[in-house]
Computed example of a mutant assay.
Amino acid sequence: MRTPLALAAVATAIAGLGLSPATASPTTGTAAEEPTVTHERGVVIECGGTFGDEEVFVSVYENDTFANVLQVVVGDDGLGRSRESAAGFVSRGEVRASLRLDGRRVLVSGTATRHGKRIAVHEEHDDAGQHIVVDGFHRLLRTDLTMLWKGRTVDLDCGEAFRYDLQVTTTDTTGD
């Protein structure tokens, strides 16, 4: 399992939304005064497939603290779109997420069920003047997903797929 890559994908998704634990989490004091701690639970599912001659990338991302985001990209030209939703995309092992791409509805659906034991996670890295420490657990997901678009069904092969339960501690390293 590519845990550091997966955590980077989670951090990238949060950053892409213009959110950071220091700005999005209610705490006392400022990020420069003391660490900010968030408890984050959610799902990361990253899949690929082929639509005609074009490669497809699908990401289903849920985070109960920040946002739930569906992203679909078709081809090297970057035809793609993402959609944020207050409601989650995965419920009781069923995946159902949609957005409009090139004027047509894209539907990602199927199953994502827990598989195996919990995997302990610990990572530390620096990003944008912050030291970030991540501790918690992942649990792999067994997936069977398809994407329906323009009347065609695409079987999706999902490499990164897991539930996570993490405590994220962010400390400002830029000083005053």
Rank of each mutant, 00 (worst) to 15 (best):
G110I: 02
T174A: 14
L99A: 02
R2N: 09
T38I: 14
R96M: 07
A86E: 13
S91N: 00
A97W: 00
A13E: 14
N63I: 03
P21A: 12
I132T: 12
T27I: 02
Q167G: 06
G80M: 01
F51N: 04
R92M: 04
A86L: 07
V72L: 12
E124G: 09
G16D: 15
F162G: 10
G78P: 08
D76M: 14
L70F: 09
R96W: 12
E84W: 03
A128L: 13
A32W: 01
D53P: 05
T36D: 03
G80L: 00
V133A: 14
G49K: 12
W149N: 03
V60I: 14
S85H: 05
T23L: 10
V60C: 01
H125R: 08
I45M: 05
D176P: 11
G49M: 04
R142W: 04
H122F: 09
V60Q: 03
I45N: 01
S98A: 05
A11W: 12
G52M: 09
N63F: 02
G75R: 13
P26W: 03
F51P: 00
A112Q: 01
P35T: 08
R139E: 03
D127S: 07
V58H: 05
S20W: 00
H39V: 03
R96S: 10
V72F: 09
I119N: 05
D155A: 13
T153P: 07
F162H: 15
H122Q: 06
G78H: 11
D77R: 15
R92P: 01
L5H: 05
D77A: 15
V134Q: 14
A87D: 10
R96P: 01
F162P: 01
A9E: 10
H39W: 02
G151S: 06
H39I: 00
E33M: 14
V37P: 00
M1C: 11
Y61L: 06
A11K: 11
H131M: 01
L101V: 06
T146F: 06
L101A: 08
T169M: 10
R83C: 00
G88P: 07
R142F: 05
G16L: 11
V95D: 01
G88H: 03
E94I: 11
T3P: 06
F137Q: 08
D155W: 02
A31H: 09
G49N: 04
